[in-house]
């Protein structure tokens, strides 16, 4: 490893190299005071440099972990962890089925589709569903909703929250017959809405800033279990002339989101728009933001019309098989398709 790759400021690097220290190995046996004199820098600065050198090589620490490389995890441990992984239900049983129980925490899931297919609906639904308490089979967390498009509708959130509350009441009536049913504190629509933190983002700078800030915000609000970004695309689609910069900034955001998901065990749901992609002499629909972005998410779900039905298709996932399931958008939120057919036309 070379000195150039160390996380040091440019002037320090320059001084190191001009003094002949080009590889890390040459630095490893130096004392801070020696280095300070040689580079004509203060001793604290020298100490900093040496610290980053030892971090860089990853000197074996004293901990008794069995892994070969520090900070790594064996595949077996990961499997154990995956089995305890929680999922957030989408309220559509078919969709939950193909997703292996719902949107998984600790992962970044991207959901895309044509306008009006129900992306925002699914987003609001997840923001409500994440709050279903443990004893109802939920996650019992809170939600962050990042709205870049201004498409979040309070009225709709209220409808979905009310329906969710009703469903839970129904559930407890069925399973806890008798007086003890009343003991369980029922969640009101108001409680649901109280636990959704809504951020309205008006420019791409704010979007970058917020992604950076979320780390701190989640530390302060530990029970946040889902972050919904509706949509990642909007500002990046209109305000950017410099495409290279866009790719770089988006890459940064993607990394940050993955870090959030892993570090705090939250589910990150990123909604994306679609665009026309020109290939083989015809236009196809494809999710926006280009090819480099398509690597950013762990799972990718595309919502599309299949004849007259709305379908969700798993386009990419490391663990789930590619499958497609119908769903419907009802006045109560996202539901199974069959229940839709039984539903009488309201109004």
């Amino acid at each position: 490893m070379e000195v150039l790759r160390l996380p040091l400021s440019a002037s320090h690097k320059g001084k190191l190299i001009s003094a002949g220290y080009t590889s890390i190995a040459s630095l490893s046996s130096l004392s801070p005071s020696h280095l300070a004199i040689e580079l004509k820098i203060s001793e604290t600065d020298a100490l900093e440099i040496l610290k980053s050198v030892s971090d860089g090589i990853g000197l074996p620490s004293t901990s008794s972990s069995v892994t070969i490389v520090n900070g790594a995890q064996s595949a077996w441990d990961m499997l154990q962890e995956e089995e305890t992984l929680v999922h957030i239900t989408t309220s559509c049983a078919d969709l939950d089925n193909i997703l292996g129980g719902g949107i998984s925490c600790k992962e970044v899931t991207e959901i895309g589709g044509v306008p009006g297919i129900g992306k925002t609906q699914l987003g609001i639904q997840l923001a409500v569903n994440v709050q279903i308490p443990y004893h109802y089979g939920g996650v019992g967390g809170k939600a962050i909703y990042v709205d870049t498009e201004g498409s979040f509708m309070v009225e709709r959130a209220l409808q979905i929250a009310e329906a969710c509350g009703d469903d839970m009441a129904e559930y407890s009536r069925l399973y806890h017959k008798g007086p003890q049913a009343c003991e369980v504190k029922m969640m009101q629509a108001k409680d649901f809405l109280e636990n959704i933190f809504y951020f309205r983002v008006c420019s791409y700078t704010e979007q970058i800033a917020l992604t950076n800030y979320l780390d701190k915000f989640i530390t302060e609000h530990k029970d946040v279990k889902v972050v919904i970004i509706d949509s990642i695309t909007f500002h990046f689609r209109q305000d950017f002339d410099d495409m290279a910069l866009r790719t770089r900034v988006l890459g940064g955001i993607a990394l940050n989101l993955m870090k959030l998901a892993r570090k705090y065990g939250v589910a990150v749901v990123v909604l994306n728009q679609v665009t026309n992609k020109y290939s083989d002499g015809s236009f196809h629909l494809a999710l926006a933001l280009g090819d480099s972005w398509s690597h950013a998410s762990t799972n990718r779900i595309i919502l599309h019309w299949n004849g007259d039905e709305r379908h969700a298709y798993i386009d990419k996932s490391p663990s789930l098989r590619s499958a497609s399931a119908p769903y419907s958008v009802t006045s109560k939120g996202i539901r199974n398709l069959t229940s839709n057919k039984k539903r009488i036309k309201h109004m």
Binding site: V154, C202, I208, Y213
Partner: peptide, 20 residues
């Protein structure tokens, strides 16, 4: 510096209930 700038530049949250 980036953390500080981000915190200040990012919009403030509102709960949906207060929005309503």
């Amino acid at each position: 510096a980036v953390a500080l700038i981000s915190e200040i530049a990012s919009p403030h949250y509102q709960t949906v209930q207060s929005l309503l």
